[in-house]
Design a protein around this nucleic acid. Structure first.
Length: 644
RNA sequence: GCUGUUGUAGCUCAGGGGUAGAGCACUUCCUUGGUAAGGAAGAGGUCGAGAGUUCAAUUCUCUUCAACAGCUCCA
């Protein structure tokens, strides 16, 4: 008996039945066999040591395959656990999966906390055990046997996991003296691990439930070559330099004050320019797309939010009502703009001919985020949404939704955001109590979102339980410099608030009908968008956004008058910048302007005064030669063209 | 909110039971310099806040506030 094995290049080879992955690798080449970590068999990743019993399509996985890395890191989690058990006997283990960069393991250290040198000790132990090249041995065990093993070991977490597994599906993996409950697969042996680093240690609730005990989550990463670890750590350092919190401070874009309150950003003058440029960009795009700007107050009476359902849903977890001298009168800081916009819609009767009505507002909202959640500008307690609500007829929903997708993509393209994920955020079918509204309307809304996304050929991922309480969403997720994912643009279909606010329009049949609402914010919030933008361009903003576009740098005081006149001419041409007339050498002025990431430096000395020119130096690119001022302004305008 | 770590000058950080230090930034003076840091002097801090231990606390203990990492949450 033999099996037909189809390789990734389409070629088919015959092997004896029970052939092992490693043997296939060897038959291809010894070199491949040496670096093989696992094998993909008909889409399933397996140990190289497991026999293949039927005709299959396979792929030998190495470090160059992402699933090869995943397997490597998962096996490294076991190696970590082995090291931990050797150093700290009695440690109990939760789960230890591979993640995007490395792995983590949730452990119960019985009250112990790690110090710096503990981490170094663990790393050393991991490498010591790796050197033994211990084989990861797979063993199928009965539920009873598995239970017995971990009962004896006294690991209640593993027992809980086993309890949820069906008998006959349980496997153990053993390497060296360490045995773990694990479905696998694993790399052949520990010897592949040549570098290990414990990255950080944090708390994590057992099984992600905040009512459970908090375990210690240890994050680590390993590599098959020491040099790759160095490179990884170097990249991490580089990423940290792009952190918007660091750049925001250095470039004087925004700040926080304990006295003002946590999570309440203070926009500095330079950050405000950035923000206002973005607002202007969006305003123009929205006027073109048929939106009407509106303005509403920062507070609204409690009754408004009782009607919308926000009060019931978030009342206890939000800023508490503001009381007036009048007995029983309460106002809430607005957490959303939609209720206000509903009332604008309602101020007069609407005809089907008027729809869609698109009301847009840069609305500042306040949400009482948990203290541990606050994070620079990406998660704050007061922020401004580029919000709008589209009130339309049911037959217009899809068309309107698609138009909004186009607007979001226009924004992302204009700012060079290419690596976004379009996420269809659905409700959690297991927990419908979290949401308001009727099933069939939810189903309809979810369907419409997916159809609209398909129409624009967006690659989407659907995630359950991520919907807003009043409706499903299409969220545009973008990663920050440190790999954390944030929701920027969002589009939501809502059948519920129109119901709650009793919104109506008169149809062609002269009957009253209920409109549908689309909530949408292409930036999401200005704060978060700016944060991600800062990290995306590392503080080197596109010219049309840069707070300071030019710096005029006289070579000595003698040329200050000419430099000043140059600066005034540029200012008159709406070019933003600084005039550095400090008593410093030109090298110093250049350095300071470079550090501030100012796109253009205009250097003037004796030569430029005589020729009535300016010497141009571009940020990061050095001397560009000199030109007349009018010529510079003209070139600048071309280069500065905003995407609107 | 939870677990852990951290909190010293505007910024980045050192120090440590006897009321504090560096570099950069800032001010003044010297210097008038051609493409990434010229020189000198000066000023600047209740050592996050509150309480306790002590003859003495910025240092030790507790509480609290904030930041950071992760978890949980995110209209």
């Amino acid at each position: 008996m033999s099996v037909k094995i189809t390789l990734p290049d389409g070629s088919v080879r015959e092997y004896p039945q029970q052939v092992k992955g490693i043997e296939i690798a060897q038959s291809i080449s010894e070199g491949l066999a040496r670096v093989s970590l696992a094998i993909e068999v008909n889409g399933e990743i397996r140990d190289l040591s497991r026999p293949i019993t039927e005709d299959s399509s396979i792929k030998i996985l190495t470090w160059n395959d992402s699933s090869g890395k995943t397997t490597f890191w998962h096996s490294s989690a076991h190696l970590f656990a082995e090291a931990l058990e050797a150093l700290y006997p009695g440690t109990k283990f939760g789960i230890g999966p591979a993640i995007e960069n490395g792995f983590y393991y949730d452990v119960d250290l019985g009250g112990k906390t790690f110090a710096e040198d503990d981490l170094a000790k663990i790393e050393a132990k991991m490498l010591e055990l790796a050197k033994k090249s211990n084989v990861y041995e797979r063993r199928e065990v009965s539920k009873a046997e598995a239970t017995e093993y971990f009962t004896k070991k006294g690991d209640e977490y593993k027992l809980e996991l086993i309890n949820d597994l069906a008998d006959g599906t349980i496997t153990f993996y053993t390497q060296g003296d360490f045995t773990d409950l694990c479905r696998g697969p694993h790399i052949p042996h520990t010897g592949f691990v040549k570098a290990a680093k414990i990255l950080n240690v944090a708390g994590a609730y057992w099984r992600g439930n905040e009512n459970n005990k908090m375990l210690t989550r240890v994050y680590g990463i390993t590599f098959p070559k020491a040099k790759e670890l160095e490179e990884f750590l170097h990249l991490q350092e580089e990423a940290k330099k792009r952190d918007h919190r660091k750049l925001g401070k250095e470039l004087e874009l925004f700040t926080f004050s304990e006295k003002v309150g946590m999570g309440l950003p203070l926009w500095l003058p330079k950050g405000t320019i950035l923000r206002e440029r973005l607002e202007q960009f969006m305003r123009k795009a929205q006027v073109r797309a048929g939106y009407d700007p509106v303005v509403t107050p920062h507070i609204g009476s409690k009754q408004l939010y009782v009607t919308s359902g926000h009060y019931e849903k978030y009342g206890k977890d939000s800023f508490q009502p503001i009381h007036t001298p009048d007995e029983g009168e309460e106002f809430l800081l607005k957490p959303m703009n939609c209720p206000h916009h509903c009332e604008i819609y309602k101020h007069k009767p609407r005809s089907y001919r008027d729809l869609p009505v698109r009301l847009a507002e840069f609305g500042t909202v306040y949400r009482y985020e948990q203290s541990g959640e606050l994070h620079g500008l990406t998660r704050v307690r007061g922020f401004t949404q580029d919000d709008a609500h589209i009130f339309c007829r049911p037959d217009q929903v899809k068309e309107e939704f698609v138009k909004v997708i186009d607007l979001v993509l226009h924004v992302f393209n204009s700012l060079g955001f290419e690596n976004y994920t379009a996420q269809v955020s659905l409700r959690d079918p297991a927990n419908k109590a979290k949401y308001i509204g009727e099933d069939h309307l939810w189903d309809k809304a979810e369907r419409e979102i997916q159809e609209a996304a398909d129409e624009r050929k967006l690659t989407t991922v659907a995630v359950q339980g991520e919907a807003a309480f009043y409706g499903p969403k299409l969220d545009f997720m973008v990663k920050d410099a440190l790999g954390r994912s944030w929701q920027l643009g969002t589009i939501q279909v809502d059948y519920n608030l129109p119901e709650r606010f009793e919104l109506e329009y008169v149809g062609a049949d002269n009957q009253k009908h209920r409109p549908v609402m689309i909530h949408r914010a292409p930036f999401g919030s200005l704060e978060r968008f700016v944060a991600v933008l800062i990290e995306h361009c590392a503080g080197n903003f596109p010219l049309w956004l840069a707070p300071d576009q030019i710096a005029v740098l006289p070579i000595s005081e003698k040329f200050n008058d000419y430099a000043q006149s140059v600066y005034e001419r540029l200012k008159a041409a709406d070019i933003r910048g600084v005039f550095d007339d400090r008593d410093e050498k030109i090298g110093r002025k250049i350095r300071d302007a470079e550090v501030k990431k100012i796109p253009f430096m205009l250097i003037v000395g004796e030569k430029e005064v005589n020729e009535q020119k300016v010497a141009i130096r571009k940020h990061g690119q050095g001397d560009q030669g000199s030109v007349g001022i009018d010529e510079f302004v003209e070139n600048f305008r071309k280069e500065c063209a905003a995407p609107f």
